[in-house]
Design a protein around this nucleic acid. Structure first.
Length: 860
RNA sequence: GUCUAGAUGGUGAAAUAGGUAAACACGCAGGACUUAAAAUCCUGUAAUUCAAUUCAAUGAAUUUUGCGGGUUCGAUUCCCGCUCUAGACACCA
């Protein structure tokens, strides 16, 4: 019988459909909630980089299940967001259609990885059954404020009672009342900047802006102020910082987040400029200032050259980095000329890098020019001495902007009664996102403010037509914004526990069992976004008694990104320039385009004919002097837009699922970045064949012998230790070593074979199931217990003998004689020792490890 | 620019309370089997130098974990300073 992965994998995929891996054993109280960050179902499907995380969590959960834990390993889809909307603009299809199609594709791909997900617990954030509770949380945030004394969220009604006692609350009109409450609400309205493109007449995401111009059309983009919903995360900063002690996260991950929160003690002083007072923040108590700089996007000013203490050094520094000292200037634009606080500052140091962070108020172009001309201060001439410094705490983290001017997101369940925001009553949630017909999207950005039916009837509690507003008094306009993508991911880990429960966002009974996530797996790019926001959300939910745990994710491991080669070409005006000639052109005018690898002939050479044939770019290509056109080759993160994606299917098709799983894990440590290569997969295939042949070729029946047992136990110990440390890639080497030993010693004990298969089963489910079945077993291998060795007594101690720090020998000493004198006796007659009899010796003896003999030549 | 991580043979990598550097694989070279190829199996494989060679068995020294320093009997591991690479940077998810 020859190992044929295609047949075996197809067979067991079918059988596993009926296999309830996640069946809960009520006798066991041990639970293990393992979670992967859920995917965004993009139309392109998942690539290798995603699948490695699912395979990792699958191996861990199969192992934990083998230790008789009840395991929860769910999957869902984070389906609101920009890409679906962009796809809709390109094709004219409504986003929901695309998303459903993509989810289907994803499900198929996920089911083709040998991964056991709890499919009964699937969630989808764009379904109204899910976002009902996202809206519910938003309304709670709206109706709560942060009480400084208790350090907790409390109902806004309590605040009103307090205000009634202290102030003349009742005499205020509703608008003024709301103005005050807005300062306290955890979800509140405030003006902040957005990217505004007048030509497209729409708001753009950062991603849609390239070098200050819109990605589609290349029109100028400006920063414009708009009233937006914000979440008051800053009130929770002290708690977020304090609770790191409960988190079993890698230190550097915590540090990234801590730095992002960026709590700092700073000093500030006030200077006068042309009758305007400016408050300027500095990090340290300096007594001189040479230059002041904004550290974007935070709201304080930093010293650029804090490490240099005198002016000469600054000048040297500037010369070194090719900055001209002449243009060493600051430009200040006022956020609001009445309030006179600084908002913007540009220096030439930032050059092109920071253009995207400069805010320009387009409503006020004249003001902009005025300021530009009048407020350029050359600090070369103005050194400010001796001013008063006061200190305060500032944070890098700002409150979260919660409004998005897009269609494809959760509608914000708020209507405006005479301009005052009012929540829709909870029992009338969800406020459903209206379905939009096909043709409306084509080539247009669609937003809720273009709807004809988007007002709220307070009597019927239903959405109704805008035209009724003037006629009837009980109809009010709804908020036309939607929520950002993090709104859904903030709390999704709770929904998995009871995804079908209608009455509340969690079923308390089930929550009490599963609680928070034991092991969370995801990309490092989410640390400052999702991971921070969902910690904040969890703390709020704890304040309002929905959850009991301080933190949502006990342990976190970040998944290393998979990188692959990218090829790009550069355009200058209407010509493409070969990469080796690029220095001749002004970098800021060059436009970069990624190229598919199939258009690369050799190394970096571009196949221009092929490109022209396929009508990809209709511009002239300027060749180099060898008559070639070279691209830029770089190693970058896998992404569809960079044409460097590898999909699991193309590998599985050739090698099979087991082989693919084994190889991905074997590539290296899970949390380190990896550059993609396929070269080494052959070794995995060989290993699978070896296993197959070892298990099935029952040649001679050797009696099961104790020494093999101890070797085996030793390996089992190591394997379990690696699981504990989450270094599961190392186990594959151990499996290989173990198999090599078993084959060499010609072992054919059925018990050993069985144990070996159980050890392998989390990694390679299909081949082990098949062999398990072939060994005459009826039940699935995943019902078996993973072997654990309780104690492993060793009789001998290994010593490394070194002379002058060089290894000379390895000796084994019985535990009874574990001392220096005995070892000395033992090595006395050895050549390396005997030779140097007459020299002075110094012994460095480390018990159970090493004997280092330093031999020094005697001076006459 | 700010922040974070990383750098070990031809390649992926292994080795952490500081103690055998290169396990396990890939590749390559040589051999076995085969008409041939594939597959499989066996042997060798960090570098340099020296010794030894009829057969057999090899033996010894030095260097080496991106670069330059430091601490230590001993550093891939700890400290300081560089270089390079990748990632994040608030409306991508």
């Amino acid at each position: 019988m020859i190992y044929n992965p295609k047949i075996i994998e197809a067979k067991w995929k079918k059988k596993h459909k009926k296999f309830n891996f996640f069946k809960i054993n009520k006798n066991s109280k041990k639970k293990f909630y393992i979670l992967n960050m859920f995917p965004y179902p993009s139309g392109y499907g998942l690539h290798i980089g995603h699948s490695i995380g699912y395979i990792f969590s699958d191996i861990i959960s199969k192992y934990k299940s083998g230790l008789k834990f009840n395991v929860l390993n769910p999957i869902g889809f984070d389906s609101f967001g920009l890409p679906a909307e962009q796809y809709a603009i390109n094709t004219g299809n409504p986003p929901i259609k695309i998303i459903n199609k993509s989810i289907k594709k994803y499900k198929n791909q996920l089911k083709n990885l040998g991964v056991f997900f709890n499919w009964k617990k699937i969630i989808n954030t764009c379904s109204s059954k899910y976002y009902k509770w996202t809206q519910w949380i938003f309304l709670k945030l709206f109706n709560y404020y942060f009480d400084k004394k208790t350090n907790k969220a409390k109902k806004i009604k309590k605040l009103i009672n307090k205000l009634k006692k202290k102030t003349k609350w009742n005499k205020l009109n509703n608008k003024n009342k709301e103005k005050i409450l807005n300062k306290y609400r955890l979800a509140y309205l405030k003006k902040s900047y957005i990217n505004w493109c007048p030509k497209l007449n729409s708001v753009l995401a950062n991603e849609e802006v390239v070098n200050g111009k819109s990605e589609r059309g290349g029109y100028l983009v400006f920063k414009k102020k708009m009233v937006q919903w914000h979440l008051r995360i800053t009130k929770y900063i002290n708690r977020l910082l304090k609770d790191y002690k409960y988190l079993n996260w890698p230190k550097y991950i915590k540090n990234i987040q801590k730095k992002w929160i960026g709590k700092k003690k700073v000093y500030f002083f006030i200077i006068k400029l042309r009758n305007k007072k400016l408050k300027i923040f500095v990090k340290k108590k300096f007594d001189k200032i040479f230059n002041i700089i904004f550290n974007f996007p935070s709201n304080y000013i930093d010293f650029l050259l804090k490490r240099y203490k005198n002016k000469k050094k600054i000048i040297n520094f500037i010369n070194k980095k090719n900055y001209s000292f002449k243009t060493y200037k600051i430009l200040i634009i006022f956020k609001n000329s009445l309030k006179q606080s600084i908002n913007i500052y540009i220096s030439n140091y930032y050059k092109n890098n920071y253009i995207k962070n400069i805010y320009v108020d387009t409503n006020n172009n004249k003001l902009f020019n005025n300021i530009k001309n009048n407020f350029i201060i050359n600090l070369k001439d103005k050194i400010i001495y001796n001013f008063l410094l006061k200190n305060i705490y500032i944070y890098n983290l700002n409150d979260l902007v919660f409004s998005r001017q897009r269609y494809w997101g959760e509608p914000i369940p708020i209507y405006y009664k005479n301009g005052i925001p009012k929540p829709i009553k909870i029992k009338y949630l969800p406020l459903k996102l209206p379905f939009i017909k096909k043709n409306i999207f084509l080539n247009k950005k669609f937003q809720l403010n273009k709807l004809k039916k988007w007002t709220w009837d307070v009597k019927t509690h239903k959405i109704t037509y805008n035209k009724f507003i003037k006629k009837k008094k009980h109809i009010y306009p709804l908020d036309t914004n939607t929520m950002p993508s993090f709104a859904a991911s903030n709390w999704y880990y709770l929904r998995y526990i009871s995804p079908k429960y209608d009455k509340f966002l969690i079923k308390k009974k089930e929550y009490k069992y599963w609680k928070n996530v034991d092991l969370y797996i995801g990309g490092i790019e989410h640390i400052n976004g999702h991971l921070l926001y969902s910690r904040f959300c969890n703390k709020f939910l704890k304040d309002i008694n929905i959850v009991n745990n301080k933190e949502p994710y006990k342990q976190f491991i970040n998944q290393g990104t998979i990188l692959n080669n990218t090829y790009s070409i550069y355009k200058y005006k209407n010509r493409f320039i070969s990469y080796d000639n690029i220095n001749k052109y002004n970098i800021s005018h060059l436009q970069k385009f990624y190229i598919d690898k199939k258009y690369i002939i050799k190394n970096k050479k571009l196949d221009i004919n092929n490109i022209k044939k396929n009508n990809i770019y209709n511009y002239t290509f300027i060749l180099n002097n060898k008559n070639e056109f070279l691209c830029k080759k770089k190693i970058e993160k896998m992404s569809k837009s960079k044409f460097n994606i590898i999909t699991p299917e193309e590998i599985i098709k050739v090698w099979g699922i087991d082989c693919y799983r084994l190889y991905l894990i074997f590539l290296g440590p899970f949390n380190k970045k990896k550059i993609w290569t396929i070269d080494k997969i052959k070794g995995m295939k060989r290993f699978l064949y070896k296993i197959w042949n070892f298990i099935l070729n029952i040649k001679k029946y050797k009696k099961y012998n104790n020494t093999y047992n101890s070797i085996f136990n030793n390996y089992i110990n190591k394997i379990n230790l690696n699981y504990k440390k989450l270094l599961i890639h190392k186990n594959i080497s151990l499996f290989m070593k173990l198999l090599n030993i078993l084959i060499k010693k010609n072992i054919s004990s059925i018990n050993i074979k069985k144990k070996f298969l159980i050890l392998l089963s989390p990694y390679i489910p299909y081949i082990t199931e098949e062999l398990w079945y072939k060994l005459g077993q009826n039940k699935s291998i995943f019902y078996e217990r993973q072997p654990i060795i309780k104690s492993n007594k060793k009789e001998y101690v290994k010593y490394i003998i070194m002379i002058n720090n060089r290894k000379k020998d390895i000796i084994f000493i019985n535990k009874k004689n574990n001392n220096l004198n005995y070892i000395k006796l033992k090595i006395k007659e050895k050549k390396y020792f005997f030779n140097k009899k007459n020299f002075f010796k110094k012994y460095i003896f480390i018990k159970n490890k090493i004997l280092n003999i330093l031999i020094l030549q005697k001076k006459n």
